[in-house]
């Protein structure tokens, strides 16, 4: 069970990690990084899958289906556009 202070500790430490990771990012990577973090919260897919998997009424199944659909779009779309953007970042020393 993740609850009480354990939950708070996880939340606090993860918040500091997020702050630190992005704190040193140069401006030129802001858009790809925003896109990359957008991809990372695509992890909502696993939650949506569990919610749909446990749904038993028609209403719950409909909402769960929409949730999985949206989450899959978030994860896949986030990956594709981030990868496309980062693929273009090359220094003048690299061959193109």
């Amino acid at each position: 069970m993740i609850d009480g202070f354990i939950a708070l500790y996880i939340f606090m430490l993860a918040a500091f990690v997020g702050h630190e990771v992005i704190g040193r990012v140069p401006v030129i990577l802001h858009t790809p990084l925003m896109s990359g973090s957008n991809f990372v919260h695509g992890i909502v897919l696993v939650g949506a899958m569990v919610a749909l998997g446990r749904a038993d009424s028609g209403l719950e199944m409909t909402i769960g289906f929409i949730g999985v659909f949206l989450a899959a779009g978030n994860a896949v779309g986030g990956y594709v556009v981030t990868e496309r953007m980062l693929e273009m970042f090359k220094s003048s020393k690299e061959k193109r």
Binding site: I10, A15, F16, G18, S37, H41, I43
Partner: peptide
Amino acid sequence: MIIAGTVVGAAGTLL
């Protein structure tokens, strides 16, 4: 979900 979501929440807020 907790860790990934919180990391993005914190990083996004800073950004």
